[in-house]
Computed example of a mutant assay.
Amino acid sequence: MDVHIAESPVEKQTIRTGLSPRLLPRLKEKAIKLLLQAAAFTSVAITLGIVGVLAYESFHFFQQVSVVDFLTDRQWTPLFADAHYGILSLVSGTLVTTTVALLVAIPMGSLIAIYLSEYAARSVREFVKPVLELLSAVPTVVYGYFALLFVTPTLQTLWPDLPGFNMLSAGLVIGFMIVPYVSSVSEDAMRAVPVYLREGAFALGATRMQTALRVVFPSALSGITAAYVLGVSRAIGETMVVAIAAGMQPTLTLNPLEPAATMTAYIVQVSLGDLPHGSVGYQTIFATGLMLLLITLLFNIAGHALKKRYRQVY
């Protein structure tokens, strides 16, 4: 008498593929691992490609322009007949607008993070945080015209001699623009602090403000530092706000009430296509981009060092 034994789904799949039941899951895991590695290395390869292009084009630029003049000359007039290539003018404008932005974003973002983390009810937090993060979804060109057409006229009521293009209005608007980056990441870091630290502070008689400032904030300083570094990088790399509101004239000044050009604004100006590709004037955008990359890298290294120093392990 013939006895028919039903085949299990695994056996059927094994027959179809010719692979053992144990080998097939391993191959799937291996494929998933390779896919994830490819995604990770793709981002690294793109970064290396950007650095390589900047370094290659900048090398040709520095074959015709002295590095010493590039770093020490006080004038930046690469588009004039009497060309000067002093990057200090663009660096000063970038640092001034970034400083003004951080003076707005860091205190405001930190206070918002403390409120959302330690004071706000859950319903309030769930409403305020998404609304606050909508600020980061507004196109930067809108922020630029807001700075030019609203913030600058408002400031001119306080300083009648304030030029129409100035770094103060651009920096203020950039500060408001990056508040969501600072507040959101800082609030997440503060909410990650264990509850028992708060309870211990309350048990010792600390108020909610004392607990927030002396216990929670220092414990979350690693993540808060990452939020600050993110804000710095975002402020340094901002383009449209400074291009519209701060002006396009490179000026070596630390006065935020004056107009000046930033590195990103200059790159936009030259990238419009008025200069022939391969000329010294065109290659200045790669040298400027390389300088911008190095400045951002220095801030990120400093932030990483601070984050590593104050990292808390619970």
Rank of each mutant, 00 (worst) to 15 (best):
T253I: 08
I295S: 07
L275M: 12
T225F: 03
N255S: 11
G200Q: 08
L306M: 13
L197W: 13
M240S: 00
K307Y: 11
M248K: 12
H277W: 13
A305V: 15
Y228W: 14
V182A: 05
A220Q: 01
P218H: 00
G237H: 01
P194T: 05
A201M: 08
A246F: 06
P180N: 10
A201F: 09
A192E: 09
A226K: 07
T284L: 01
V313N: 11
A212K: 00
L290F: 03
L254E: 00
D274K: 11
L272W: 06
G278V: 10
R208L: 04
P250N: 09
Y310M: 11
I295Q: 05
I236W: 05
M240V: 09
L257W: 09
A206H: 12
I178R: 07
R191P: 09
E199L: 10
A189K: 01
M291F: 06
F217I: 06
A260E: 10
F202H: 13
P250R: 10
S279F: 06
M263R: 03
E187C: 12
V216W: 03
L254H: 08
P250D: 10
V182S: 04
I295P: 06
M209C: 10
M177L: 14
L294S: 12
A227I: 08
I244E: 01
V268K: 08
G223P: 02
L297Q: 12
Y266W: 13
P180G: 02
F202S: 15
L230A: 09
N300I: 06
M263V: 07
R208I: 00
T264F: 00
Q210L: 11
M263L: 05
S184C: 11
T264L: 03
S219I: 03
V185C: 03
Y282H: 15
A305F: 15
P276D: 13
V313R: 12
M263N: 01
G303T: 04
T251V: 13
Y282C: 09
S233F: 05
R311G: 13
T288D: 00
T239H: 09
V232F: 13
I178L: 06
I244W: 01
I295A: 03
Q283T: 07
L297H: 07
S183M: 10
I236N: 04
S184H: 12
F299I: 09
A220N: 04
P218A: 06
V216G: 03
D188G: 13
I301M: 12
Y181H: 10
V280L: 15
L254N: 04
L221Q: 12
G278R: 04
Y266S: 10
A189P: 07
S219L: 08
